[in-house]
Nucleic acid binder design. Structure first.
Length: 498
RNA sequence: GGUUCCGUGGCCGAGAGGUUAGGCAGAGGUCUGCAAAACCUUCCACAGCGGUUCGAAUCCGUUCGGAACCUCCA
């Protein structure tokens, strides 16, 4: 199914037709996590959003090289200008009395586990900053050679005014006004080695107590935060690739500086299209550890948080994020999650019913056109800047048709088998391959639990046939206290974990 | 203060000049030994005030409210 893909380019602030650099292939770079603590729930939303984008590109038949880095050095916290800043990984290593690489590994592992829970596909390449020190040093050299970097006391800074003079367009992504930047009145702190407040470090000299450091032409030190993405995207995707993504919060300074570095080093803007995902709010407010308005992925799943009345499964959370557009803020509330949980179940049950359908043999029946239109509609919504909520709405309209057929409110005589087969394929492709959902209700497929449950339900079914309501209710109540819901249908009984 | 963006029914959330978004909840009904579940039907809307237009939730102005970045926090 070839459709013209449109996407909203943050760089131009316009929706544009997508044309890859090399036909049939897509180079996609997404800024990954800084692995100094457990992954933030908002970060999970970002990676779920890009997973959807990745999956849809794959579904369209593109050969996608998806690069998502791990930042394990260079991301500082504190005041850079006064050298009070400390590397996030190093700081955590000091506090936990571990090697920095142990910290990076520990939280990388945790991050991977969480991504797996949310059914996020692994990227094609997951490079880490510490594994690409030579590439970063090389890029600093290029930047200096091109006149956009200067050394001071063993550190190297990107010369923003020099860059502006040549290229004029610094700040395009984040809407910064060049003149304002140049005239910035903020005083440089005495200790600062920077010539201009807007300059930023691309190589930093390490202090004696600093653990993570490497030899370089300028000092024993470490690369600046933004540099790893520039170096690694260039290495694996080339000087000019298709899509660069990340969270909205990274637009400035991270992505702006990345662009400047790439242009400064290679003369090329790195990516043709920039995609930014929006923030996840909790009860209408930004998540913040300090004021308690915060929930971790684990707390959300287990329900161990004052912000939720119960735990929500990873797929419920994933479904929840699909109901909004990736570029909109999404407000996480207990009520909204409970609604998502039910909606998710309705979608999955609809698919289950659908997969057993058989239509009429002869082609072209009255309902075919309506069904086809909804299927095609859901695909074209996805092609329009990955509009999952709109596509999902169409899928739910299909669910209503499916249920009507199932309940004989509509007749199978009015649907051709071709149409049913197409619907079966497209519907399950959509929810499993594109949306990346999975059915959690019946795990343990064919295992011991399923066998036992079948036995129990058979016994209850016999009791009901004999109008032995005492036994049948006893079984139902006992299962209910184990959080298993028994569902009685015309064809018999089934069960689902609450 | 600067740069972006948003305010949609009880809740979440699409849409974007004239047409039903969708999910959840509510109401009515079907089914059922009872119930639950499931299914069907259905009510409720575009922050306030001006303006443009034959027509505005959608465009413009303005007021109020919220969010992000600029400063450690995804």
């Amino acid at each position: 199914m070839k459709v013209a893909l449109k996407l909203y380019n943050s760089l131009t602030r316009q929706k544009e037709d997508f044309t890859p650099v090399v036909e049939g292939r897509v180079g996609l770079y997404v800024c990954g996590p800084t692995v100094y603590s457990d992954v933030h729930l908002g970060n999970c939303r970002t990676f779920i959003s890009f997973d959807l984008i990745y999956r849809y590109l794959l579904y369209l038949g593109y050969k996608v090289r998806y690069v998502r880095n791990v930042t394990d050095v260079g991301h500082l916290e504190g005041d850079v200008d006064t050298h009070d800043a400390e590397d996030k990984i190093s700081k955590k290593a000091r506090l936990e009395q571990l090697e920095p690489m142990e910290i990076a590994q520990k939280y990388t592992n945790g991050f991977h586990e969480m991504m797996h829970l949310f059914n996020v596909l692994p990227p094609s390449i997951e490079p880490r900053a510490t594994g690409h020190i030579p590439e970063q040093i090389e890029m600093v050299e290029q930047i200096i050679a091109n006149g956009f970097g200067y050394e001071a006391n063993g550190s190297v800074y990107f010369d923003v005014p020099a860059f502006i003079e040549k290229y004029k367009n610094y700040g395009q992504l984040s809407g910064r006004v060049v003149d304002d930047l140049l005239q910035e009145t903020r005083d440089l702190k005495n200790q600062s080695e920077k010539r201009h407040p807007a300059d930023f470090a691309i190589w930093m000299k390490a202090s004696d107590e600093h653990i993570m450091k490497w030899n370089s032409p300028w000092s024993v030190g470490f690369p600046g935060w933004h540099l790893e993405c520039s170096a690694m995207s260039t290495k694996y995707l080339g000087e000019r690739f298709d899509i660069h993504g990340g969270g909205n919060d990274l637009k400035f300074p991270h992505h702006e500086n990345e662009i400047a570095q790439n242009i400064g080093a290679c003369g090329n803007t790195p990516a043709n299209y920039w995609l930014h995902t929006n923030m996840l709010l909790l009860n209408g407010k930004k998540m913040s550890k300090s004021d308690g308005n915060n929930i971790t992925p684990v707390e959300l799943i287990t329900g161990n948080s004052p912000h939720v009345s119960k735990g929500y499964s990873p797929m419920t959370v994933r479904f929840f994020t699909l109901q909004s557009h990736y570029s909109s803020q999404l407000d996480l509330t207990d009520e909204a999650l409970a609604a998502a949980e039910k909606g998710f179940r309705r979608l999955m049950e609809g698919n289950k019913a659908l997969q057993s359908f058989v239509g009429s043999k002869d082609g072209n029946k009255p309902l075919d056109a309506e069904i086809d239109a909804l299927i095609n509609g859901s695909f074209s919504e996805m092609a329009d800047d990955f509009n999952a909520p709109k596509a999902l709405a169409k899928l739910f309209e299909l669910v209503t048709i499916i249920n009507k057929l199932n309940d004989k409110h509509l007749s199978f005589d009015d649907v051709s088998n071709d149409c049913i087969e197409r619907l079966k394929n497209c519907f399950s492709d959509f929810i499993f391959k594109i949306f990346g959902l999975s059915d959690e209700s019946t795990n343990d497929g064919g295992g011991v639990v399923d066998g036992l449950m079948q036995l129990i339900l058979d016994i209850r079914s016999d009791a009901r046939t004999n109008k032995d309501w005492t036994t049948s209710d006893k079984i139902r109540n006992a299962l209910s206290s184990l959080k298993i819901v028994v569902k009685d249908n015309k064809e018999g009984s089934s069960w689902v974990k609450e």
